[in-house]
C-alpha cells in the first residue's frame, strides 16, 4: 500500500469515533499491542527526548524498504507511534523522504495534543525522514 493510501485508511477509521475518549481508548489499545523494543535497543543513542515521555527508535533496511521499530514509556505516545509506523515503516526511503504527513492533522490529533506533548512525535517524524535520506545516500 502506498503511504497516502494508508493515511487515508487511518483517517477513515477515525471517522467512526464521535468523541475523544473513544479515540484515545483506541490509541491506547494499539499502543498496548505494539511490541516492546528489546531493552538492549533502549539506549541513549536511540532515544528521542520529549518533554514528558521518552521515545526509542531503531532503523534498518530490508531489501529496498526502510523498517522502523519504536517504543515509548507512555502508552498514548506508543499508540501514536504505532500509527506512524503503520504509515512510514516498510516503505522505500524515496517514498518516505518525499511524503507529506497529513493524517495526524486530519484525525484531529495535531491540535488536540499540545506542543509539549507532540514534540517527541514531531522529533520522531524528523528522525524517520533523516534516516530515509541517509539510506538513500547509502544506496546511491
Amino acid at each position: 500500500m502506498t503511504i497516502n493510501a494508508i493515511q487515508d485508511e487511518i483517517i477513515e477509521e477515525f471517522e467512526l469515533f464521535d468523541n475523544w475518549t473513544d479515540k484515545y481508548a483506541y490509541i491506547v489499545e494499539i499502543g498496548k499491542k505494539l511490541p516492546d523494543l528489546a531493552e538492549e535497543h533502549k539506549t541513549e543513542e536511540n532515544i528521542i527526548k520529549g518533554c514528558q515521555s521518552k521515545v526509542w527508535m531503531t532503523a534498518r533496511m530490508e531489501g529496498d524498504q526502510a523498517v522502523f521499530d519504536a517504543d515509548s514509556d507512555a502508552i498514548i505516545v506508543k499508540g501514536l507511534i504505532s500509527l506512524l509506523l503503520r504509515v512510514l515503516s516498510n516503505q522505500t526511503p524515496e517514498e518516505i523522504a518525499k511524503t507529506d504527513l497529513y493524517f495526524m492533522e486530519k484525525i484531529g490529533l495535531a491540535q488536540h495534543l499540545s506542543m509539549t506533548r507532540s514534540n517527541g512525535l514531531a522529533a520522531m517524524v524528523k528522525q524517520i525522514k533523516l534516516y530515509a535520506v541517509a539510506f538513500q545516500a547509502m544506496n546511491a
Binding site: 475518549t21 484515545y24 491506547v28 515521555s53 507512555a74 502508552i75 498514548i76 505516545v77 506533548r117
Partner: peptide, 8 residues
C-alpha cells in the same frame, strides 16, 4: 505514565 493520565 503521568503523561497518559494527564491526557486522559
Amino acid at each position: 505514565h503521568h503523561q497518559d493520565l494527564g491526557i486522559m
